[in-house]
């Protein structure tokens, strides 16, 4: 039985679950490190609150707001990046005309 399974496994091309796990973890771990490490643990909360404010005006979700704290030497740079959804930009352009 074990031999048969090994042969079947050999020909089956589906990705192994361990490598799926590793890929998913590399993404999530990198993201969480960027948002939680570096001394400022208020960043996730800041991100949530910014999102709440923005959501009052536009349909924006978490992936449109990124908050990052970078350290270069003694200098800390807080980077806020808000990507406006396309229709928002389009509407603004329309209003301007």
């Amino acid at each position: 039985m074990a031999l048969f399974e090994s042969v079947v496994d050999y020909f089956r091309r589906t990705p192994k679950t361990a490598s799926i796990a590793k890929d998913r973890l590399s993404v999530i771990v990198a993201r969480e490190r960027a948002s939680t490490r570096g001394g400022a643990d208020y960043l996730p909360q800041l991100q949530q609150e910014l999102l709440a404010v923005l959501a009052k005006y536009e349909n924006i979700d978490l992936q449109h707001v990124s908050v990052k704290l970078d350290k270069t030497g003694d200098c800390e740079v807080l980077e806020l990046n808000i990507t406006l959804p396309e229709q928002f930009v389009a509407k603004k352009a329309h209003a301007a005309v």
Binding site: K16, A18, A21, K22, L25, V29
Partner: peptide
Amino acid sequence: GEMLSVDDVLEL
């Protein structure tokens, strides 16, 4: 291939 290896976890 059903479980993360020592090397995988160390790398992460």
